[in-house]
Design a protein around this nucleic acid. Sequence first.
DNA 1: TCACCCATGTAAGGGGTTACATGATTGC
DNA 2: GCAATCATGTAACCCCTTACATGGGTGA
Lengths: 187, 187
Amino acid sequence: MNALSSVGKVILGAVAAAPRSGYEIKQLVDRSTRFFWAASYGQIYPELTRLEEAGLVEGEDDARGGRKRRVYRPTDEGLQALRDWVGSTDATHEVRDEALLKLFFAGALEPGRALAVVRNLRDARQETLDRLREVQAAVPAGAPELAPSLLCLDYGIGVHEWTVEWCERTAKRLETALADGKEAAAR
Amino acid sequence: MNALSSVGKVILGAVAAAPRSGYEIKQLVDRSTRFFWAASYGQIYPELTRLEEAGLVEGEDDARGGRKRRVYRPTDEGLQALRDWVGSTDATHEVRDEALLKLFFAGALEPGRALAVVRNLRDARQETLDRLREVQAAVPAGAPELAPSLLCLDYGIGVHEWTVEWCERTAKRLETALADGKEAAAR
DNA sequence: TCACCCATGTAAGGGGTTACATGATTGC
DNA sequence: GCAATCATGTAACCCCTTACATGGGTGA
């Protein structure tokens, strides 16, 4: 039994929630999971073929208004693989945050550099936060409050809010230190 | 002028702070930046060669107690490239968080699944938090409070604390809903 | 008619991890 | 003598993004 690939996980989860075409999986990813799990066409289409060969999903031609398309749904084996994966305790967590790396090395440069980096970070996270709030505003009123996908959104909004506030606190500390002539402290 | 590669950034930053060998750069990464910017030997050594060919760093043989090693320091051009990069406004931010992906799809499975995923997430983040606190405890007392690298540590600790608390709040909400027989709400 | 969206794919190339290979030195 | 650490590198392999290619449908 081969382990699910990175893309395989998001594909299986997506088609288990509802039968979907590759195109629709990509849309779901871009609207929802992209903030913590991205996927591109270059991964999705080949992986759908592999998953079908492995017997975890099955595709069906389902033209929509003359436009031909192929939707996939999980097999019983695929559903079991999905349950096994969700039930497993290990889960990767990788972050690549260039702004933090810049901040880390800002000490080797002039004072004041760190401040600019923190302000940039704030602006970037605020933009993402705005986009997440738009997603939240589009959630239908009747949706169950504790639906897991809404919990993910709640988490995303919360962590971005926290980050923006941290940037503002930190920027103020750096401003004060610079104004007090404690440039050395900000190196 | 070619843009710095992903590894190139952390290498230049590391050798600008102090002359270092590839081995020492890897140590720095593993102790400090790995939480937001990882790098492996398979990237570091080839990239050091490329950076030297590009004239951004220069290496010098510097055996340490009979053990031969080669330390690198930035050239003037390398320092300029580092400053340009730190001063640029764009910065990638990519996250791959498997626990969140599991949570996102937990709705398609039995109720109670989401709760287990949230508890796992809490435990994983708590472990990272513990490790970050160890790093913090090892910081010498006289270090300037606003040193940029310490700000990164402060950020890491804060964001992990926030996440652990979010998991605990969310787990409680899910527990209550399950106890009240509102299983449907937790799907 | 034209722009935009639906829909499926491939190719090239960069990014990154893991495992392997090698060998010297230090401390117990 | 042995284990751990210092030290440098390579090869295989997966992951992932970007760009390209193709073609049909829908609505203004």
